[in-house]
Design a protein around this nucleic acid. Structure first.
Lengths: 223, 223
DNA sequence: TGATTTCCGGAGGTTAAACCTCCACTTGTC
DNA sequence: GACAAGTGGAGGTTTAACCTCCGGAAATCA
């Protein structure tokens, strides 16, 4: 049996044209679906949005994890960049507030990113990037305190919890009024400064009674 | 066919002794289970905690809704009473803060109560009680503003969102450090006052790094 | 223009988790 | 001790996800 050729797609030969297109469609669909519904959106749903059979999805991405890495490595990296950028602010407090606004904004637009950031990452490259955030967060908090405008009893772990709080508000009302989270971030920041003479102006109004009603009667399951 | 007797348990004759005991065990188990795991805890799990077969559970409470009403009518009523009590405070702001502390404390101890309060109530007596809270909340907010210590841009709908935020923090870290939510309530209240000269003292410290780690790696399903 | 390789779709087998019913047996009560 | 009342949990059902498999379609090659 001569010439028993190598079966592995080693050093990947390029995909066939239709396969390449489908891969793109899958990535786009998965991005949409996960941003909206979270990391554990059914594979079926992704395939459907992509207009592709489940078989195709599994052939291209044998496990959810590969899909997640393909999609979220960049986004996670952007957050690290935000953290670094926030250290360049003249005023540590401004950097702190800017970073918070940034990272929460990203999470409210992208539920899966929030899940990854808040712990759902097992191991892998995405988690590795996330872990680089810890030291940066320490510096951000440190600088804000040195600027004298962040309450001295604030701890870096509080930074995570603050995000959770604002994101909870965002997630609850997100379908009804996507920008309300800013309102609650403003309030929280007013609670985080050392002192102030009056409330910061709100850029976003409260939910109307009707909006609140709809918010309350459309709560998701959990996950 | 003489004396075809009435089959309905009309004007309920008393339950047999063992049945009465089982009913009690079921209610206790359901209370525990729902407080911990939420309204939609599997019926199976309730029966198991009660040390009773599922059959017995379904015979006593044919639907989850009946169980819920039996358990939560009182608790919901207590919240209404808290709201009324908070109106008796000399200072409207104190009443406001007290009520918030109360209602959040109840919800962090009792997940099902939180779900009921935040909308998961379909119709029924429990929902009816909850609806009595709306007008009371308006008064609470009104008085706090009149006292001059609640930021004037605060709306009653914000009251719900604030609860959601603190409860989110509580739920996230609840298994690890049940009292941290107080820390975040303190911060929020500092953001809700009109002005202040410094941060309010914290009664509860931040999560340690290890506690935060555990908090992040034990997130529930959504679900 | 075949011939050949690659890729596609989605029916369908599998597992898991909840649901609720049913009835042979046990227990309480009169 | 007879008989009504109550019990438990096996098991049928549904729902929702998982992932594989293979006949046929599409792209690429010669």
């Amino acid at each position: 049996m001569p010439d028993m050729e190598e079966p592995r797609r080693s050093e990947h030969r390029p995909l066939r044209k239709d396969a390449r297109e489908n891969r793109r469609k899958i990535l786009d669909a998965a991005s949409d679906a996960m941003s909206e519904l979270g990391l554990s959106v059914p594979m079926e749903a992704i395939a459907e949005r992509a207009g592709v059979g489940v078989g195709t999805l599994y052939r291209r991405f044998p496990s959810r994890a590969e899909l997640v890495e393909a999609l979220f490595e960049d986004r996670m990296e952007s957050i690290v960049e935000d953290a670094e950028a926030s250290l360049d602010f003249e005023d540590g407090w401004e950097g702190f507030a800017w970073f918070l606004e940034r990272i929460i904004s990203r999470q409210t637009r992208d539920r899966a990113l929030g899940e990854l950031l808040m712990g759902d990452a097992g191991r892998g490259r995405v988690a590795a990037i996330r872990d680089r955030l810890g030291p940066l967060a320490d510096k951000i908090v440190e600088r804000a305190k040195q600027a004298g405008r962040l309450r001295p009893d604030f701890d870096t772990t509080d930074l995570v919890m603050v995000q959770k709080m604002v994101c909870a508000a965002g997630a609850a009302a997100g379908d009804v009024k996507p920008a309300v989270w800013r309102r609650y971030l403003t309030i929280l920041l007013d609670g985080l400064t050392t002192s102030r003479s009056g409330p910061s102006p709100q850029e976003v109004g409260p939910l109307s009674d009707d909006e609140l009603y709809r918010t309350m009667h459309s709560a998701p399951g959990r996950r």
